[in-house]
Design a protein around this nucleic acid. Structure first.
Length: 322
DNA sequence: GAGGCGTGGAG
DNA sequence: TCTCCAAGCCT
């Protein structure tokens, strides 16, 4: 009997896989689901060391998420980014009344759960025989089948081709570990790869997939005004899609705030699709427009703020050393 | 279907 | 410091 690529992969996984990750040692669908959402576009280290356990401490069941206010869910997401994930998690909990569906087909109808995440939850929590297609699997498939072009639909076909439907949990976990530990982007360790000669792209792994054309990020130049009145500061909760639900200080187009407020300093914040360059000012004589509310420093601590607004906070923390 | 959507790790 | 990009989804 010839050894199949799938057998080689599983053998490698048993020896080299990250078996101690907390979402791999639980059967709780909610804990598996939460990990999948937090890990979208986010490194394992970040989720593991800063966000996964505190969130579960606050919301130990999916039903507790459903019963909570969305602002409290956002607070636990503060600093993690892509905040729509938190809002969708809350909306999903409400939509299914705190009881997670048990099939990929139903999971996919919930907000924030796409095809790959639905397959991941179904495979990991319920052993449903479905392949995932995340960035790790994509990179492996591109190389394994020597595919230069990025074609999502085609990749799903290959994902099913290589899939081991007898071992959905271990196969999917193994592929993610292989992608993050061996078949990495810059310097793949082909010598350590269990697929060995099965991989069509092994001779020139960096050709698969083809590099993207990266467009330069636009820069937005703004003024941020810290309005202070009797020890309280003005913040507004964002209604727009960007950083939706988070609180922030007043932000204006450069120069459009007409007063000569006291200059505090400059911040730079890199977002996914633009860079913010902002000068910060302290304003104690004039008030901002309508939608702002006033909070003490202690009260601000209970709000969810973006990274940029946290940077602004540094200027008003009384006698804090750097 | 291409772009919006955060943050920080890693080289 | 700069660039890339990490367990994607939604519009």
């Amino acid at each position: 009997m010839k050894t199949t690529p799938q057998q080689l992969l599983l053998a490698w996984y048993h020896t080299h896989g990250r078996h101690d990750l907390p979402w791999r040692t639980t059967n709780d669908p909610y804990r598996i689901y939460l990990s999948e959402i937090m890990l979208q576009q986010t490194q394992v280290k970040t989720v593991l060391e800063r966000f996964y356990f505190p969130f579960l401490e606050k919301f130990s069941t999916f039903n507790e998420v459903a019963c909570a206010e969305v602002d409290d869910v956002l607070k636990m997401w503060e600093g993690l980014g892509y905040y729509t994930r938190a809002r969708n998690l809350h909306a999903a909990a409400r939509a299914c009344q705190g009881i997670l569906p048990a099939t990929a087909q139903e999971l996919m109808t919930l907000p924030g759960i796409g095809r790959s995440t639905a397959h991941a939850i179904a495979a990991f929590a319920y052993r449903e025989a479905l392949p995932i297609l995340d960035a790790n699997v994509k990179r492996i498939l591109h190389r394994y089948y020597a595919l230069g072009e990025r074609d999502e639909k085609q990749l799903w076909g290959y994902a099913y081709d290589l899939f081991d439907k007898q071992h959905p949990f271990e196969y999917n976990q193994a592929m993610m570990d292989l992608g993050s530990l061996v078949c990495v982007g810059k310097q793949p360790k082909c010598d350590e790869c269990p697929f060995g000669k099965h991989c069509k792209g092994r001779a020139e792994p960096l050709r698969y997939p083809m590099a993207k054309v990266t467009k330069p990020k636009p820069i937005r130049v703004r003024d941020i005004i810290l309005f202070e009145r009797e020890g309280k500061f003005a913040l507004a909760q964002r209604k727009e899609r960007f950083l939706s639900g988070l609180w922030g200080f007043a932000q204006y187009e450069k120069g459009s705030w007409g007063y000569h407020s006291h200059y505090l300093g400059h911040i730079t914040q890199h977002y996914s699709h633009f860079t913010l360059e902002a000068d910060c000012y302290h304003e104690t004589h004039n008030d901002p427009q309508e939608e702002f509310e006033w909070f003490s420093l202690e009260e601000i601590g209970r709000l969810s703020l973006s990274r940029a607004d946290h940077k602004v906070l540094q200027w008003i923390h009384p006698k804090e050393k750097d």
